[in-house]
């Protein structure tokens, strides 16, 4: 039996977005794309602000489109007025850029939106067909835990499924999408992020589309959807807001230039820096 607070969805297709990082242009493009693909409801796994320009522009879109949101570590920090984003960087260069980004985002987030971030739940549990879904930001046990593909053993993911009594865990936080199908028809899905490209030299961003198959078994189909958006406009706005050139370069090239220290070996190797 699912936990008592589990909501049943009468849906066959949902879209799940990761960190928005103030990239309201990518969010608008993803919402339009998900609607066109027949997603019946959209979810966002948190980190609405960071990195991009004009953080307040994200909130209207999320509310107007009825996106169901949970809280990420950035949201938690902004809502509580903490000193940093709780990503735990120790490299002085990464800390420098993380601090710039956080201070800009905090200063440009309206107090009403800060308060709204504070009201968001830290997880959602849903029933999609026969699948019990757990939506969280980093991991079910810790909002700011990085679950990378190359440093999460299948034994550990199996443990999370058992410990949290679920069939599908959806998370974000790392900035790079991945999925693993586990024994017993269970799935771990990192949905990626809308906020910045995923360090692969491409400018698009990604979200996840979950569909109940129409076959008798009603299996779960998981697709990662690339989203192209007007990244040059975003870059121009970032420059106008005097956000760091290093952030702009990531938007324009698809390569990460900052906050690289948290990347494990395999993920780091795939990038340019």
């Amino acid at each position: 039996m699912p936990p008592a607070d589990t909501a049943t969805l009468d849906y066959r297709r949902i879209a799940v977005f990761g960190g928005v990082y103030s990239n309201y242009l990518a969010l608008a493009a993803a919402l339009e794309d998900a609607r066109r693909r027949g997603a019946e409801e959209c979810f966002c796994l948190g980190d609405m602000g960071a990195f991009g320009p004009h953080p307040d522009r994200v909130f209207g879109l999320l509310r107007d489109c009825g996106v169901r949101c949970i809280q990420g570590n950035y949201d938690n920090s902004i809502a509580r007025g903490l000193d940093d984003c709780q990503c735990g960087y120790t490299d002085p260069r990464d800390n420098y850029f993380a601090r710039l980004s956080y201070q800009y985002t905090f200063a440009h987030t309206h107090p009403d939106n800060r308060a709204w971030l504070g009201t968001l739940p830290t997880e959602l549990r849903l029933l999609l067909g026969k699948y019990r879904l757990l939506l969280c930001h980093g991991s079910p046990r810790q909002m700011n835990e990085f679950l990378w593909e190359s440093t999460s053993s299948s034994a550990f993911l199996d443990y999370l499924m058992r410990a949290y009594d679920t069939d599908v865990i959806l998370a974000t936080h790392t900035g790079i999408k991945w999925r693993r199908d586990l024994e017993g028809g269970k799935h771990f899905i990192n949905v990626g992020v809308l906020g910045r490209p995923e360090n692969d030299g491409r400018t698009n961003v990604w979200y996840a589309l979950l569909t109940l198959a129409r076959s008798a078994s009603e299996g779960l189909e998981v697709e990662f959807i690339p989203v192209a958006y007007d990244h040059e406009q975003l870059a121009a706005q970032m420059r106008a807001e005097r956000l760091p050139d290093e952030f702009v370069a990531t938007v324009l090239t698809g390569w990460w230039t900052t906050c690289l220290e948290v990347l494990p070996y395999k993920e780091r190797c795939r990038g340019r820096f």
């Binding site: 440093t151 053993s153 034994a155 550990f156 199996d158 443990y159 999370l160 058992r162």
Partner: peptide
Amino acid sequence: ESVALGVKE
């Protein structure tokens, strides 16, 4: 033995 214990790394 570690598999059943869910070791991560």
